[in-house]
Nucleic acid binder design. Structure first.
Lengths: 160, 160
DNA sequence: GGTAATTATATTGTGTGCAATCTAATTGAT
DNA sequence: ATCAATTAGATTGCACACAATATAATTACC
């Protein structure tokens, strides 16, 4: 029987397997740092969105725009089946609060607690530490990130 | 309050988030094709290892080398807490059988059933279909895969 | 203004992923 | 030979991830 009848099925040849493995290894690399803050990696991603929203207060208004569950799902490209329980765990850990919007009772708004806001200072060193561990320099990292974003755009396209 | 005090914490700037998102989108892209074969993506990866082992029979011996749970964990870089239940589900789906090695009772060997072997023919078109969906050409895909493998090597290094 | 369609979120069930722990079999040092 | 260390798997518990479904609120249309 001939060897290598199906080279396209070999693990080492597969781009997809490399992405899958790298993704898991990255999560594992974050784990010790995030554990010190009481966060998991997906929870950290939620915090990134919420922290970023703190900076987006419109001038001459009372403060930040409300972040909704829908907005979080869009930003993270996760569905409510993942995000709702994630937010519940984070709420019970005292990082944020959830409440129904007064204007539209369907909408749930998410707000950082003071404790959640404070955590940002302790998190700001993390991206540099990770970059250091992976050994990529800043420019190479940007180029790679943009290449991956291109693939994401392809796969997320409605007509895929 | 100044805007963008923490640009390094912005989601759009993060290579890690792109890897994480791409990995999930890839799994979703495989899902309809794999569902037709009764497989999930991680189960498909197990099948890739087992199919590849079919080709590795040493000449002048009776057949393929036995694939053990340990070998699968190493190839997939997953631990037994993931792989053991995965194999149990696949066994109950009739794709493979598991049995303790006679030589070393600690070792569990995994073998494809005829049904599991047959499935390879139906799977061989999948890699090309996925490549097509992502819109990467073969050479670009190889380069990207090798770049990701470099990062994997960094992160998987013992002294990380 | 009443009803159908849409929207935002929640829930359920299944399948990973992984840390931590456990058990049984084998190996190694004395 | 004996007992400690190692090794291979399994188990438990928790946290995603997502398909499918459900529910309640709002909007659109006539």
């Amino acid at each position: 029987m001939a060897e290598d009848q199906y080279p396209q099925l070999h693990l080492d040849n597969q781009l997809c397997f490399s992405v899958y493995t790298l993704s898991r290894l990255i999560t594992q690399a974050y784990q010790p740092m995030l554990q010190a803050l009481g966060l998991t990696y997906p929870q950290y991603l939620v915090m990134l969105v919420l922290w970023q929203a703190l900076e987006k207060g419109r001038p001459a208004t009372q403060g930040a725009l409300p972040v909704t569950v829908k907005f979080l799902c869009e930003q993270l490209q996760l569905d409510t089946g993942t995000v709702t329980p994630l937010l519940k765990r984070m709420e019970s850990n005292g990082l944020l609060v959830r409440r129904r919007s007064a204007k539209d009772e369907r909408v749930v708004e998410v707000d950082l607690t003071d404790s959640g806001k404070t955590l940002r200072e302790q998190a700001k060193h993390i991206p540099a530490d990770i970059l250091c561990q992976t050994g990529v320099d800043v420019e190479q990292g940007k180029a790679l990130r943009d290449e991956l974003k291109g693939l994401i755009r392809q796969l997320a396209a409605p007509g895929s």
